[in-house]
Design a binder for these strands. Sequence first.
DNA 1: GTTCCGCATGAATCGATAG
DNA 2: ACTATCGATTCATGCGGAA
Lengths: 286, 286
Amino acid sequence: MEIKTDIILGDSYEVLKTIPSDSVDLIITSPPYADQRKKTYGGIHPDKYVEWFLPISEELLRVLKPTGTFILNIKEKVVKGERSTYVIELILEMKKQGWLWTEEFIWHKKNSYPGKWPNRFRDSWERLLQFNKNRKFNMYQEEVMVPVGDWAKTRLKKLSQRDKIRDESKVGSGFGKNISNWIGREKAYPTNVLHLATECNNKKHSAAFPESLPEWFIKLFTKPEDTVLDPFMGSGTTNIVAQRMSRHSIGIEIIPEYYQMVKEQIRPVVLSLFEPKEKYGKTNNK
Amino acid sequence: MEIKTDIILGDSYEVLKTIPSDSVDLIITSPPYADQRKKTYGGIHPDKYVEWFLPISEELLRVLKPTGTFILNIKEKVVKGERSTYVIELILEMKKQGWLWTEEFIWHKKNSYPGKWPNRFRDSWERLLQFNKNRKFNMYQEEVMVPVGDWAKTRLKKLSQRDKIRDESKVGSGFGKNISNWIGREKAYPTNVLHLATECNNKKHSAAFPESLPEWFIKLFTKPEDTVLDPFMGSGTTNIVAQRMSRHSIGIEIIPEYYQMVKEQIRPVVLSLFEPKEKYGKTNNK
DNA sequence: GTTCCGCATGAATCGATAG
DNA sequence: ACTATCGATTCATGCGGAA
């Protein structure tokens, strides 16, 4: 079996037009946010964002298989003290195109960008909008069930006490948590809130998500040898993870520097296929 | 100093019209969601929801002080496998009324409703939309600072060793009740993600949100003797907390049973003021 | 007086069945 | 065809009773 990882240099909209209809199982991307990353993408003004994105989402709707899923990582920026509305306007417009707005996951960024402002706190979450073509789509829930170890850990952190306190607290009785409730349990289904830390080890690229993010959705929505697409590849996280997980993938990037960087990162992995199996090896240097 | 807690029986829109303009410092409410709580509130159809809410938000805009804040707790339900759009439509319409959509907090509900479905996970978050009249508004960030450090780790270790631990804090992430316990430690500002469990408390009536939720926003956006308004009072959580925190408050409720229940819960607390101090006594029987 | 175990119960959602 | 109701699924939490 050979996994094909197609890295394409060019404008997203133009390249998408060359991709066959109904050929992609999962689209996962983090497009340039409005007016962000000016140096690299030129920055799209918040007022023009929807207008700019709609032709692209139209093409994405075309290339996605009927059973496929589109995960859009996005967050509105603050303009003049107010949250912009381009994201929610985009949702409404994409529905008009025929997309189903199936779900909105929350990505809780544990280590959010530091800073202090007089009238707001640090922004530590982003939207992960799930869109589909049909009500029926492929979803492999068992693949992302949380194993005991991780689950118990996260629970333990938030655990308060095993000793109850009745009335000295304002909020009423304390927690009487029964440890046996989770010990011995093997797996549980996750929820629509994802707790992931942002990775800050990629100095070159301006806005990349952690590998665990595409990994989670690739596990959830695809099987090996399915095809994953990232129309705004950036540092190529999606494609690198997809290849490691034996999924075909396509990455589109307009900036030559990023394109080159990903190209070089992909190559050694391909070569390693001719060597003894090394599924999750350190062949790609992240 | 006497704290006034006004519990009013009646239709929200009608009662709001009797409240003076620019008189409220904080509005925090959780209106009946579309098609939810049918048994008690009749249920508003998703398609009619915006239309139903807009006259009310118009009045809320009038009664709020220029420096005040409106916190709206809401979440869209799933209809035919898709998320409804009435919440995002509401945001757009409220902006047309003159509201500023300042921020969106996420309430991460640790104990979300159970269930398993082929195409979605459990919904474990809700929106806490912040609206303002002006870009400048009152915000007392220091009041909600949370302790940082390794105390959680230490406690975790003790816990695993089955030592006796007394912990009056609700959770370690921004809603500790006895923050004074941690004076001397370093403190940090919270983020816009709140971690709270829903309270499944009284057998009779379920509270819309846990007490720590209004408590947090009351601390953040008001000072003692300010006025808090909840136009959909329900079980009166907001008003009970406001009174305990020495804020005047107004609660509006259309269901006589809830109205009566809150009335009875408020009275004993008021009376206790004439007795020796009993700040966090069992006067309110939750 | 503490700790542990069992159990009821939710601002849920889907699919099937009934009018 | 379109709404109304019901059963099944699932799990964190609070509480009562037992060890």
